[in-house]
Design a protein around this nucleic acid. Structure first.
Lengths: 268, 268
DNA sequence: GAAATAGAAG
DNA sequence: CTTCTATTTC
């Protein structure tokens, strides 16, 4: 049975509802996980999603910043919002559902960006980021027996050399510093997660999901980073049939700086 | 020889360049006077106007607020920017040109709105407005022998009963208080100006050029005011062939709260 | 309600 | 470069 999940840092869901609609109509994923919705819960455009066939909506939003949401064609049987670092930020949303008899846990994350200075002693934002990924070590792909797991979202870290346009030039740039890359890989390992994007795309191939707004011709310079991720429990790796980074969306009208990433599976 | 002038409070010229283009393409006025350009001089979209055939551009802008501009198919032979109330505001721009051998002076005004409280003793903005129209008394339609004159723009005053949706309800609302209406009519009389809009449209007919952004269905409630004006020297009155208040523009995409007003002439 | 400004954040 | 939060102005 085919099944597709999409993740997208949308950078304001209200502003970009037309783009979300385009994604859903073109690709029809079963589940869409959004980050940076920048939308208070009472203003989330539920109607628009329901009209598109996504009748099941879980939101964890706040005013102005951050915010995650997961929408689905199938109903959720559990919804959890975890407050990482106990700071009150809306950065995590966990949902559980059944797809063709298979039970599935989906964690949707928006990891702190971390500011400019990659020194936790002087930059509290970077400290927050490191603390956050430290806490992520406790999120296990095997937490619930009989339930497969996915962890997707904007993790704001590009851990491998081919996850950035220039490993050398980004070594001291937040998102690709050794300390945070190692921290993220530690969380991945501790949680028994498989990096499904890299499971599908060879490690020697560049793979980006984000291009800064600051460079005019993003495609020509191609100074991207892989900040968005799809991780899965071990059992999902063999079921994976496709990874699709929708780079074209970076050129849509008034785009997000992130593009959607889709993972497709054929589950028994 | 036919000749048309348009005046429009555009509420940000950069934001509404597509609407300006639509006006110019649909109506092709010889001269367009804009108010509330909200555009520093070095950021005025000169190229766009030139591409539309308006190669002669006079601007009096400032950062953030106010600002007037006059664009023309014919060249100017004189440009004057007058600093009313010596406060440094960009609220006046006077240009002179020849149309079919006729010499023409065009004053483009953006009169201060005046704040909420119609009492010059407690509201310095209202005082400023009254001082401004007092100073306008010195602007004469007959200042230059052999030169016809026009005075157009957002004068922020609706002087007659039929210039507002409810004379009674607006008597104490800034824009229609007796003190400012009388002040404006005094400036009109002292300058030997003819109210060309009222020359063409009978006084018992309602005539509005502005509808607040605050009312959802501007057309249904029709709570408008005639804040924009076209005045002319006596000799132009018999040449006037049409006055056109483009109310339709209030329903264009992302509109200004003011609509364009056009005056057409057949000049010998 | 819809512009502008500024600063914070990405 | 683009989004938010505010404040101010009309």
């Amino acid at each position: 049975m085919p099944f597709t999940i999409a993740t997208w840092n949308i950078n304001s869901v209200r502003l970009r509802m037309p783009l979300v609609q385009r994604l859903l109509e073109e690709r029809k994923p079963d589940i869409l996980c959004l980050q940076e919705t920048k939308c208070p819960n009472d203003q989330f455009p539920e109607k628009a999603f329901k009209a598109l066939g996504y009748e099941h909506i879980a939101i964890h939003g706040q005013k102005g910043y951050h915010g995650v949401a997961t929408v689905s064609k199938q109903p959720f049987d559990d919804i959890v919002r975890q407050d990482f670092c106990q700071i009150g930020d809306a950065r995590h949303l966990s949902t559980r559902l059944s797809i063709g008899g298979r039970r599935l846990r989906v964690h949707n994350f928006y990891v702190p960006a971390g500011g400019d200075e990659p020194n936790p002693e002087v930059n509290v934002k970077f400290k927050h980021k490191l603390d956050f990924i430290e806490e992520m070590r406790l999120i296990s792909a095997e937490a619930e027996p009989g339930v497969s797991s996915l962890l997707v979202g904007d993790l704001n870290i590009a851990p491998f050399e081919t996850d950035v346009w220039s490993h050398k030039q980004l070594l001291k740039v937040v998102s690709h510093t050794p300390i945070e890359c190692e921290g993220l890989l530690r969380a991945q390992a501790d949680g028994r997660w498989t990096d499904l994007m890299r499971h599908h795309v060879p490690m020697d191939e560049q793979l980006f999901t984000w291009w800064s707004y600051r460079s005019k011709d993003w495609a020509a310079s191609n100074r991207g980073r892989r900040l968005d991720h799809i991780w899965g429990s071990q059992d999902l790796a063999p079921a994976l049939t496709a990874i699709d980074v929708m780079s074209a969306a970076r050129s849509w009208e008034r785009p997000s700086d992130h593009v959607p990433v889709l993972a497709s599976f054929d589950i028994a």
